[in-house]
């Protein structure tokens, strides 16, 4: 009788764990699709204002007049690609646990992809950022959002403690800081952070760059 109860408990527990994991994975897939749609729309549109309805004035000021996007697209602000590592993940608008389950999170307070400043992205070492263990200097990183695709090149990597927030500081040129846990094979909350520093190659999105540049 006890054995039968234990067996039921194990079946139920196992099913619950796996169902939760499948649900989280499904949300990740939905975020990935939203990111793909956004990048596709940006590459199809003739200007950055088209897909959001934003209007860019002659002096460069952007005014949002867009219709509100769907909830999934609300959270997804772009996509990160590292072709050499076969890494492609959606970028979500926050770095809270829920956002990190659905993609790579944009660290609040840091610059947006392609922006003038240091953009900070955090991701789980056991999912989206697992391939980062093989990253090296000069690796190309592509950040795409509704305005286009920005190319960064890796300068260095380092391993730091979680209180080293200066890795997100603005440097002499626009940059990108990727953050994930370290060691990569640690079971449970890892004590350190693996940091990738990269810099922006051009402040203009790639599809807008003319042949002269």
């Amino acid at each position: 009788m006890l054995q039968r109860r234990l067996e039921r408990l194990l079946w139920t527990g196992g099913a619950l764990c796996l169902t939760y994991c499948v649900c989280v994975s499904a949300r990740g897939v939905a975020s990935r699709r939203a990111a793909d749609r956004m990048v596709q729309a940006a590459s199809v549109a003739s200007g950055p204002a088209m897909e959001t309805g934003a209007t860019t004035t002659e002096t460069g000021l952007t005014t949002e007049t867009a219709a509100k996007p769907a909830s999934e697209e609300d959270e997804v602000i772009g996509r990160i690609d590292i072709p050499v590592l076969k890494l492609s993940a959606p970028i979500t608008s926050d770095d809270d646990p829920e956002s990190l389950r659905r993609g790579v999170g944009h660290i609040r307070g840091t610059a947006m992809p392609g922006g003038l400043g240091t953009a900070g992205l955090a991701g789980h070492r056991d999912s989206y950022f697992r391939p980062l263990r093989h990253i090296a200097a000069q690796t190309q990183i592509l950040l795409s959002d509704k305005t286009g695709t920005y190319r960064y090149t890796v300068d260095s990597t380092e391993i730091v403690m979680p209180d080293r927030v200066d890795v997100l500081a603005v440097t002499e040129r626009p940059g990108l800081t990727l953050v994930t846990c370290y060691p990569f094979d640690y079971i449970g909350p890892a004590p350190k952070r693996f940091i990738v520093h990269a810099h922006l190659l051009s402040a203009v999105p790639e599809r807008e760059r003319g042949p002269s540049q």
């Binding site: 994991c21 989280v24 770095d95 646990p97 990190l100 389950r101 999170g105 660290i107 609040r108 307070g109 840091t110 900070g120 955090a122 991701g123 789980h124 070492r125 056991d126 999912s127 950022f129 730091v160 979680p162 209180d163 080293r164 927030v165 200066d166 890795v167 997100l168 500081a169 953050v179 994930t180 846990c181 640690y186 079971i187 449970g188 909350p189 890892a190 952070r193």
Partner: peptide, 14 residues
Amino acid sequence: PVVAALPHTASGMP
């Protein structure tokens, strides 16, 4: 600094 500490990037998924 823009944040007090770097984000937690360990998930319980595995």
